[in-house]
C-alpha cells in the first residue's frame, strides 16, 4: 500500500485486536516513517488544545478570557501543527489534492470512537473557496469517520482568512450563520469540527453562532492540528 504523504510503499502492521475487529477504514494510510514524524498532543491547554507541559489555560486563551469572559472553548487537537502537517495541508488545501482527505482517517476514527458525540458539525467553507477547490477540506477529512450534520453557512468574505494579519483576524465580524431547524440539536452532545486551530477566532465564531441557535447543548470542538 502506498503512503498518502510520502508516496512510498509500505506494509500494514495490524495488531491482533485490529484483525479481530476488522474495520476497513481503520487501515493506516500513512507509513510508519511518516507516522513517526507526527507528534500527538497529550498535555494541552484546556481551551484551545495547544500542546504544553501544564494543563493551565495558555496565555492566548487568558487574553481571550479577559476580552470575552462568557465565551470559553473546549478544543481538542490530535497533532502538533509541525512541518509534516504544514506540508500536508499545503498539498491538500492549497494544491487541492483531494485524495489526501483519507490520510488521517484512522487516528481520527479512533479518537471519535472514544469521544462519541451525538452530533458532528463540520465548519463550512465559503462558496468561493468551494467553487475553486471543488471540496470542503473539513468535510473531506471527517466524512468517512463520523456522520456529519451541516447546519452552518459561511458568509461571503472579502479577504481570505490566511492572508490576514492576526490582529485583523481577531476583529472580523461574525463569519457564520445558522441554517435549518435547530430543535433537533437541543440537549445534544455536539462536536464542532475544523482542520487546523490557529488563532481560535473561527472556532469561537462558530461556537457563538451555534450557542445562539441552540442554547441548550453541550458543545466541544475538535481539530486535527494545533
Amino acid at each position: 500500500m502506498k503512503c498518502l504523504l510520502c508516496r512510498q510503499n509500505f506494509s500494514q502492521n495490524l495488531t491482533l485486536a485490529e484483525l479481530l475487529h476488522w474495520l476497513p477504514l481503520l487501515t493506516d494510510q500513512i507509513c510508519p516513517h511518516c507516522q513517526q514524524r507526527l507528534v500527538p498532543i497529550t498535555t494541552a491547554c484546556p481551551e484551545c488544545g495547544r500542546a504544553q507541559t501544564s494543563t493551565e489555560r495558555c496565555r492566548d486563551c487568558q487574553r481571550w478570557l479577559q476580552a470575552q469572559p462568557q465565551q470559553q472553548l473546549h478544543n481538542q487537537a490530535l497533532f502538533i501543527y509541525n512541518a509534516l502537517l504544514q506540508d500536508f495541508f499545503k498539498r491538500y488545501k492549497s494544491l487541492g489534492d483531494y485524495r489526501l482527505r483519507h490520510a488521517f482517517n484512522a487516528p481520527c476514527q479512533r479518537w471519535f470512537a472514544q469521544y462519541s458525540a451525538d452530533v458532528y458539525i463540520p465548519l463550512p467553507t465559503d462558496e468561493q473557496s468551494f467553487a475553486q477547490r471543488g471540496f470542503n477540506p473539513v468535510v473531506g477529512l471527517y466524512a468517512d469517520c463520523v456522520p456529519l450534520t451541516t447546519c452552518l453557512k459561511k458568509r461571503p468574505q472579502l479577504v481570505k482568512q490566511s492572508h490576514k494579519k492576526r490582529q485583523a483576524r481577531l476583529q472580523t465580524p461574525q463569519l457564520f450563520e445558522f441554517v435549518g431547524d435547530p430543535t433537533g440539536l437541543n440537549n445534544k452532545k455536539i462536536l464542532l469540527l475544523d482542520d487546523i486551530y490557529t488563532t481560535g477566532r473561527t472556532m469561537r465564531h462558530a461556537q457563538t453562532c451555534l450557542k445562539i441557535a441552540v442554547p441548550n447543548c453541550r458543545l466541544n470542538t475538535f481539530t486535527l492540528a494545533r
Binding site: 483531494y98 485524495r99 468551494f130 471543488g134 471540496f135 473531506g140
Partner: peptide, 11 residues
C-alpha cells in the same frame, strides 16, 4: 480523482 462537486482533477 473525483472532487466533491463532481469534477475530476489530475493528481
Amino acid at each position: 480523482v473525483q472532487l466533491a462537486d463532481g469534477r475530476y482533477y489530475c493528481p
